[in-house]
């Protein structure tokens, strides 16, 4: 049995939206090298629409695939739609992730939210801080891996 679904392998080996946006409207980075995964998302926002999105990821195949899928899911969408993206939706769009790799989809959701927060901060747009609670990644990682 393969470790990952065909969709995960597709997005891992042919990731969409890889790269950097210079002078992006918002940049979000989550994770740390200790855990073994770091995700960075760049957003280009015009009139509340995400006109472009790029990512860079250091991590598992599932982390790269989650970033790729998540960027596809928010490209061309409004910032409000992007705010509503959940890790569950990312994992489902990938036809599921193994239980111990689910945190990769959590990283994708949080990287996007961080990038949006950066955009709000840069433009003095008020927002509800409750929406941006960050997970302790060491803790999350330990939880899913049953340290």
């Amino acid at each position: 049995m393969a470790l990952y679904s065909e969709k995960v392998m597709d997005h891992f080996t042919n990731p969409r939206n890889v790269g950097v946006i210079e002078n992006a409207s918002g940049v979000g980075e989550v994770g740390n090298a200790k855990c073994g995964d770091i995700m960075k998302i760049y957003l280009q926002i015009e009139n509340e629409i995400i006109v472009d999105v790029k990512f860079e990821t250091f991590g598992y195949g599932s982390a790269i695939a989650s970033s790729s899928m998540a960027t596809e899911m928010i490209k061309g969408k409004s910032i409000h739609e992007a705010m509503a993206l959940t890790n569950k939706a990312v994992a489902e769009a990938l036809d599921g992730l193994p239980a111990h790799k689910l945190h990769c989809s959590v990283l994708a959701e949080e990287a996007i939210k961080n990038a949006l927060k950066d955009y709000f901060d840069k433009n003095n747009i008020p927002y509800d801080h409750e929406q941006f609670k960050e997970t302790d990644h060491d803790d999350l990682h330990a939880q899913v891996h049953g340290e």
Partner: peptide, 23 residues
């Protein structure tokens, strides 16, 4: 880089190896 993604891509290119990476 991270070892798991390295192993998976190597496997796709026909090289079966191992890593001391986490997870």
């Amino acid at each position: 880089i991270e070892g798991e993604s390295l192993l998976l891509l190597l496997d796709m290119k026909g090289v079966q190896a191992s890593s001391g990476s986490a997870c």
